[in-house]
Amino acid sequence: MTNGEFGIFLNGSYGVGKSSALEHLADLFAEAELPFSLFDVDWFHRSWPPASTDPQNVLTEADNIRAVWTNYRRTGPRTPIIAGVITQVEDLERYEQCFEIPLRIVHLTASPDVAERRLRGRYSPSQHRALAWHLDDHHRLTRELHQFTSHDLVLDTDHCTPAEVAALVVEEFAPQLHS
């Protein structure tokens, strides 16, 4: 691991604003001329069918992330900014192994009503199965996330725009990136 380097991991259940905040973080990092690379982990494991030896696609996801991170690192030092879900220490360890640096975890939360409203806005009527699955699983995942206590920052996104969430994350971590 490189001394002083770290990545920023936006952690949370569905509908809390991880992907939206990720985009705004990219804008703020670019404006501050801080080198970064974005990772929305959903795009690194979304394939079907999964391997019989990797039913949740977590090993495939890790291999894909590691390969892309290796490519980004060839262009020079940078901060990985990741949106995904970490519910247990094993998840954190797997991601830290992919990036070979420690990760600062930002737990984004939202009330059930706000998360549901956001999820309903994300899916079209033809995606009703995906919406129903995410609405149903949101509560389970939220409970698991509250049991995982290795968060460096917790932000309630109910009354914050994604840009405001990103600004709070930059305010918390950017000073450490300049040093």
Rank of each mutant, 00 (worst) to 15 (best):
S47V: 14
W133D: 13
L38G: 04
E5Q: 09
N57L: 07
E90W: 06
L92K: 14
I8V: 14
E96H: 08
P112D: 00
D40R: 12
E171L: 04
L155M: 10
N3D: 13
E23M: 02
R46A: 13
V169R: 03
A51H: 14
V114A: 02
A83D: 04
E31F: 02
S111Y: 02
D152M: 03
T157P: 06
D156W: 05
A21W: 01
A21G: 03
Y123T: 11
L145Q: 13
P175V: 11
G15R: 03
N71D: 02
R143H: 12
D42Y: 01
W43M: 05
A26L: 06
G84T: 07
R120V: 07
Y72D: 04
R122D: 07
Y123L: 11
P102Q: 11
G7V: 01
L34I: 15
E31G: 03
D113Y: 01
A163Q: 13
H24Q: 13
L28K: 09
P125D: 10
N71E: 03
A110Y: 10
T75E: 12
E93K: 13
F173M: 05
H138M: 11
L153I: 05
I86A: 12
S111H: 00
V58Q: 10
E144Q: 15
A130N: 12
R73H: 01
D156H: 09
A166H: 06
I82F: 01
H138G: 00
R46G: 04
S13Q: 00
P102R: 09
L153N: 10
V85S: 10
A62V: 08
D137M: 14
S52D: 11
H139Q: 10
H159D: 11
V114P: 00
T149Q: 15
E96Y: 06
T2G: 00
L59M: 14
L108N: 09
N64S: 11
F39R: 01
R120T: 08
S19H: 07
N3W: 04
N11T: 08
N57S: 10
N57H: 05
Y14S: 14
G76W: 00
L103T: 02
D54H: 09
T109C: 05
R104V: 01
A21S: 15
E100R: 14
Q147S: 14
V165K: 03
H128W: 08
D54A: 11
S20C: 02
Y14T: 04
L135Y: 13
L155G: 05
L155P: 04
I8L: 02
L119N: 08
G84Q: 02
L10P: 02
E23C: 00
D91Y: 10
H178Q: 12
D91L: 06
I82A: 04
M1A: 14
Y123K: 13
D137I: 09
S124Y: 05
V85M: 10
L141V: 12
W43L: 07
D40Y: 06
A21V: 05
S111N: 03
A51Y: 10
S111D: 04
L28M: 09
D156F: 06
A26I: 07
A83N: 02
V89G: 05
F9S: 00
S126L: 12
Q176G: 03
D137T: 13
Y123M: 10
S19F: 11
E23L: 04
V154E: 14
H128Q: 14
E33S: 15
Y14H: 09
C160P: 00
P175G: 08
M1Q: 10
